Simulated assay, not measured.
Amino acid sequence: MNSARVVGVSKKFGGVTALHQLDLQIGQGEFVALLGPSGCGKTTLLRLLAGFESPTSGEIWINNECVADASKRKPPEERRIGMVFQSFALWPHLTVYENVAFPLQHQQQVPEAFRQNPKARVAQMLEMVGLGGMEERFPSQLSGGQKQRVALARAIVFNPTLLLMDEPLSSLDAELRMQMRKEIQFIHRELGTSIVYVTHDQSEALAMADQIVVMKSGRVEQAGTPHDIYYAPESPFVAKFVGRANFLKGSWAAPGTFLLEKHGAPALPITVSRDFSAFYAQQVLPVRPDQLKLSAWQPGADGIVGKVVHVQFQGRELIYSIRVGEEEWEVVTDISERFAYDEPVQVEVCL
Score class of each variant (00 low, 15 high):
S235T: 10
G303R: 08
T44A: 02
K72T: 13
V214F: 06
R137M: 08
A68F: 02
W91S: 08
E136P: 01
V311H: 03
E183N: 08
Y341C: 06
I184S: 13
V305Q: 14
I60H: 00
A70H: 14
H20W: 15
V7E: 15
D290C: 01
P236E: 02
N99S: 04
K72R: 12
L90A: 09
A296P: 01
S194W: 07
T271P: 04
F247S: 07
Q202L: 01
A123H: 09
R80Q: 12
E112R: 13
S277N: 08
M125Q: 11
Q298E: 07
R121Q: 14
I184H: 13
G303M: 02
S336L: 02
V32L: 15
A281N: 12
G51S: 03
V349L: 12
K182M: 08
A207C: 03
H188Y: 07
D173H: 02
G132K: 14
Q108M: 07
D342C: 03
I81S: 15
P76C: 04
Q291P: 00
M208A: 05
E328S: 06
R154D: 03
E78C: 03
K216L: 09
T17N: 03
K293E: 12
H263I: 00
W252F: 00
L45M: 13
G14Y: 03
Q141M: 11
T199H: 10
L94W: 12
P118M: 01
P118D: 02
A113G: 01
V214Q: 11
I62T: 10
V287F: 10
I212M: 08
K72H: 15
R73A: 10
P160M: 01
S273G: 10
D290Y: 06
F158Y: 12
L285M: 05
S203R: 12
G264V: 00
M83R: 08
V305G: 10
A278I: 11
A4E: 04
M178L: 14
A205G: 06
V332R: 15
A245E: 04
I270S: 12
T193Y: 09
S203K: 13
V67F: 02
C40F: 07
H310L: 09
V242C: 09
S336K: 07
E328P: 03
A70Y: 06
L152D: 13
K147C: 12
A101N: 06
R181D: 05
T225M: 04
N64K: 06
V324A: 11
G133N: 09
M128I: 00
D210M: 00
P55H: 05
V308Y: 10
V324K: 10
N159D: 13
E135S: 01
V67S: 02
D173F: 02
C66N: 12
M165W: 12
D302L: 08
T43L: 04
D210R: 04
M128F: 05
P55R: 05
A33I: 01
S273M: 09
E343V: 04
D275S: 07
I229Q: 11
A223P: 04
R121H: 04
D342R: 10
D23R: 07
V220R: 08
A155S: 15
M178R: 15
A155G: 10
M134F: 07
